[in-house]
Computed example of a mutant assay.
Amino acid sequence: YCSSPELSFEFVDNLLVTSILPMSGLVSGGTVILVKGENFLPNSMLLCKFGEAEVEGRLISDTQVECISPNTSIADASRVVALSLSTNGVDFVSGPDFIFYEEISVSSLTPSMGPIEGGTLARIHGSNFIYSEFLRCKFGSNVAVASFISVEEIACIVPPREQAGNVSLSLSNNGVDFFPSSLTFQYYESVKVHSLWPKHGKASGGTSVTIAGARFENTESLSCMFGIEIVSGSFVSTEEITCVAPALTSSIAYFAAVEISLNGYDFTTDGVLYEYVDDAALLSVSPVSGPTSGGSAVTLTGTNFVGSDTPLCRFGDVTVAGLLLSLSEIECVTPPMSNRGISSST
Rank of each mutant, 00 (worst) to 15 (best):
G175H: 06
E220W: 06
A214G: 13
S234H: 07
R161P: 04
E217S: 15
G206I: 07
G201R: 01
V191F: 08
T219A: 11
G165I: 10
W197P: 02
V236I: 15
T184S: 14
G175F: 10
G205W: 06
E220C: 05
V191N: 00
N173W: 06
E217L: 15
E217A: 15
H194W: 09
R215F: 08
S221N: 15
S223V: 05
A164S: 14
Y187R: 04
V209S: 11
N174G: 05
S234K: 05
V167Y: 08
K199C: 04
P160S: 14
E217P: 00
V193M: 02
T207N: 09
N173R: 04
W197M: 11
G206L: 07
G175S: 10
S182K: 13
F178L: 07
E217R: 15
V158W: 09
W197K: 08
T219R: 09
T207W: 08
P160I: 11
F185L: 06
G233S: 13
V191G: 00
L171R: 00
Y188P: 02
E217V: 14
V191Q: 00
G206V: 10
V158P: 04
S195V: 03
K202C: 08
N174W: 06
Y188M: 03
D177K: 07
Q163K: 12
V231G: 03
V209G: 01
E229H: 11
T219V: 12
K202I: 11
S221M: 10
P160F: 15
G206N: 03
T219H: 08
D177H: 14
F226R: 01
L183G: 09
S181N: 07
G201V: 03
S234M: 03
F235P: 01
A212L: 13
G201P: 03
V176P: 01
G175P: 01
I228M: 06
Y187L: 04
T207Y: 05
L169C: 06
F226G: 00
A212Q: 15
